[in-house]
Amino acid sequence: MFEARLVQGSLLKKVLESIKDLVTDANFDCSNNGFALQAMDSSHVSLVALLLRSDGFEHYRCDRNMTMGMNLSNMSKMLKCAGNEDIITMKADDTGDVVTFMFESPDQDKISDFELKLMDIDSEHLGIPDTEYAATVKMPSSEFMRICRDLSSIGDTVTISVSKDGVKFSTTGDIGQANITCRQNTSVDKEEQTIIELQEPVTLTFALRYLNSFTKATPLAPTVQLQMSKELPVVVQYLIADMGYVRYYLAPKIED
């Protein structure tokens, strides 16, 4: 038996919005640790890893480890039927052919339940090695979203260069080129800060299409963290307060 109750149900709605453009079908892993997912996009260029820790739920029960395969577009259709103020409870029994989403309005005067059919999904669970990254950038998530969106109107790829002076985002396209530099800035409110931790300068190029998909997680966190090392996938992490994270990995473009 699996049961997880989330008073701030809108969080689950936002989580789903942050992954459904990247992945069509995915296995959610339920354990005593929490509600987790690891899935790659169909072209194996990016990966999303989600963790909602069990202690972040108001009630959490997982009698044995379960994998629940869901079509994320269908899951999203159901979660969109929950109000933003609703409490959401997920339930599944051990036979595991359906998951039930129960929505309770804040006044408890409306209770809905939606039953989603589960599916068998072959998934490749990748081992992601622990890495010391050469550069870590923390910046406002809205700023990162704005930069990715703006640059994608000029070019298809972005070159991200981190040095002690700042982080530079550059693109080139048919109409011209663009460079945006964010300098380290620790003088403002914590959520507005840009912080650079640097072992050594690093420059990598990525497809903007994927980074734009990642920024669907912006409503989940005021800050985003980028971690980069030479010729390694970038890690783009959004921390979900008191619950866990949505973390994306994107393989770089590599010169022949």
Partner: peptide, 14 residues
């Protein structure tokens, strides 16, 4: 030009 790398060349498969 630059080639898109696959994640599978960085992370260990099942």
């Amino acid at each position: 030009g630059a080639e898109q790398a696959s994640l599978l060349s960085f992370f260990k498969g099942p």
